[in-house]
């Protein structure tokens, strides 16, 4: 039985379902939630910043100031490969692992049914 569990664990790790990066993703989500607009913009993926600035040409911090993004604590998190989902008390964030570490790819996300989310901030 112990061997079976060990093999299952190896399979899960090999399949990329590793939680090695979980603390780092949680920390970035936490920093994002607690940060001011400038900090939040620094923690967005390039694609998300581009999408935000496309909507608000005056700049990312100004745009984020106007959006009702969550600022609560981390409730739960999951990492799958280079992607992560972090549930805050008042928001759901989606993160991607980049060359600079974890960055927020989508924020201000609200469940829209069948497990999908509509997000106020997201790169395309």
């Amino acid at each position: 039985m112990r061997t079976a569990v060990r093999w299952a664990a190896v399979l899960v790790v090999l399949a990329g379902c590793s939680d090695v990066h979980l603390p780092e993703a949680q920390q970035v989500a936490s920093d994002f939630a607690a940060g001011d607009p400038v900090t939040r913009c620094d923690l967005l993926t390039e694609a998300a910043v581009r999408a935000v600035e496309h909507e608000e040409p005056t700049g990312c911090p100004v745009a984020l100031e106007e959006l009702p993004l969550g600022a609560g604590g981390v409730v739960s998190a999951q990492v799958w490969g280079q992607e992560a989902q972090v549930q805050l008390t008042d928001d759901t964030l989606f993160l991607s692992r980049t060359a600079d570490g974890w960055r927020v790819a989508a924020a201000g996300c609200e469940a829209s049914g069948q497990g999908r989310y509509d997000c106020l901030v997201e790169g395309s």
Binding site: C17, G81, G115
Partner: peptide, 15 residues
């Protein structure tokens, strides 16, 4: 399963 969940997160859906 793991690959499917990566795609789920990339399209902003629950694993």
């Amino acid at each position: 399963w793991a690959a499917y969940n990566v795609e789920q997160l990339q399209s902003h859906a629950d694993p």
